[in-house]
C-alpha cells in the first residue's frame, strides 16, 4: 500500500443549488478546515435564490414535498459516516435522519390537522388551509451541529417554506456536509441555502431583510455564552416588515415548529343555485 495524499475538501457556501465561495473571498479556519465566511452580500444572494425558489416549492404537492424530504433522509443515511465525522457521531446522525423522516411524513397531514372546514352561520362554504409563510431565515443552534440545524430546517421545509440558514459558527462542517446531501436529494435549487461564518455579522442582515418573511432565532437565543441582547436586536429588526419571529428547541420534534411557519388562509364561497 503506497502512501496516497488524500484530496482535501473545500467547504463552501450553498446558495441557489450551487456551492460558491463567499463573494467576500474570506475564509476562516474552523474544525481543521477553511470555512467560507459569508458576508451580507451572500445573505442578499441567498435570499434572492430562496425567493425565486419559493413559488415552486410552495406549489409542489404535499406528497412530493414529503418524498423529497424522505429522499434527503435516504442520502443522509448513505453518507452517515461523513456526517458523523462532522458532528458528535453516529448517534446524532441517526437521530437527524429519523427526524427528517418524521417531518417528511407530516407534509400531507398538515392541511387536515391544521386546517379544516368552518361551520359559518350563513349560506357559505368556508374552509381554512395552511400555506407556507415564505422565505425563512434560520439562525441555527450552535449545538448539536447536525441535529440542531435539522431540527430547525426540516419543519420549515415540511410546511413548504424556503430557507436561508446561518450555520453554527462553532461547528460549520456538519452544515456543509448536509448541504451536499441536500444538493443531491431532489430538493429544488434555492429551497435551502446555507451560509457559514459568523451569525453576529450576517444575522442582522437577515433579520432586517424586507424580503424575508420569518426568522427563527433559536440559535441566537440559545448560543453558548449567547448574548440575549443579540436575539432581542434581531427580533426588533424583524419588526420592520412584521416578520414572524419564531424559536424552538435545538433538539425538537414538534408540530408546533411546523405550525409557527404556516399562514392560514380562509376561503369563503356562497352556496346557492
Amino acid at each position: 500500500m503506497t502512501d496516497r495524499l488524500p484530496v482535501m475538501k473545500t467547504y463552501k457556501l450553498f446558495i441557489g443549488g450551487a456551492f460558491p465561495r463567499s463573494e467576500s473571498g474570506r475564509v476562516v479556519e474552523v474544525e481543521g478546515a477553511n470555512v467560507a465566511l459569508a458576508s451580507r452580500k451572500d445573505v442578499r444572494d441567498a435570499v434572492k435564490a430562496a425567493r425565486g425558489a419559493f413559488p415552486g416549492w410552495a406549489k409542489a404537492t404535499a406528497y412530493n414535498r414529503g418524498q423529497v424530504l424522505y429522499r434527503l433522509a435516504e442520502l443522509m443515511e448513505a453518507r452517515a459516516g461523513d456526517l458523523a465525522a462532522t458532528c458528535s457521531g453516529p448517534d446524532e446522525v441517526a437521530r437527524a435522519v429519523d427526524r427528517v423522516v418524521w417531518y417528511a411524513g407530516w407534509t400531507d397531514k398538515l392541511a387536515q390537522v391544521v386546517g379544516g372546514a368552518n361551520p359559518v352561520a350563513g349560506p357559505y362554504f368556508d374552509f381554512t388551509v395552511p400555506e407556507p409563510t415564505g422565505v425563512v431565515g434560520i439562525v441555527a443552534p450552535a449545538e448539536p451541529a447536525l441535529l440542531g440545524l435539522i431540527s430547525r430546517l426540516a419543519p420549515a421545509l415540511a410546511g413548504g417554506n424556503v430557507v436561508v440558514a446561518l450555520a453554527s459558527q462553532l461547528h460549520p462542517l456538519a452544515a456543509v456536509e448536509l448541504a451536499e446531501c441536500i444538493a443531491t436529494a431532489d430538493v429544488p435549487a434555492g429551497v435551502v441555502n446555507i451560509l457559514t461564518g459568523d451569525p453576529a455579522e450576517t444575522a442582522p442582515w437577515l433579520a432586517s431583510h424586507m424580503d424575508v418573511n420569518a426568522i427563527d432565532i433559536s440559535g441566537a437565543v440559545a448560543a453558548p455564552g449567547g448574548d440575549p441582547a443579540f436575539a432581542t436586536a434581531l427580533e426588533r429588526a424583524a419588526a420592520d416588515n412584521v416578520k414572524r419571529v419564531v424559536r424552538g428547541p435545538a433538539d425538537g420534534q414538534r408540530l408546533a415548529d411546523v405550525e409557527q411557519l404556516l399562514e392560514l388562509k380562509t376561503v369563503w364561497h356562497p352556496i346557492g343555485v
Binding site: A121, Y124, T128, T133, V242, K265, V267, W268
Partner: peptide, 27 residues
C-alpha cells in the same frame, strides 16, 4: 397571498372562521 379570500362574496365574518393576515397585515 392573503389570509382571507372571499370568492363571489366580500366582507363576511363569522366566529368559526379564522381571520388574520399574511405579510405586513400581521400574524
Amino acid at each position: 397571498r392573503a389570509g382571507v379570500v372571499w370568492a363571489n362574496t366580500y366582507n363576511r365574518f363569522d366566529p368559526t372562521s379564522p381571520f388574520g393576515g399574511y405579510k405586513e397585515s400581521g400574524y
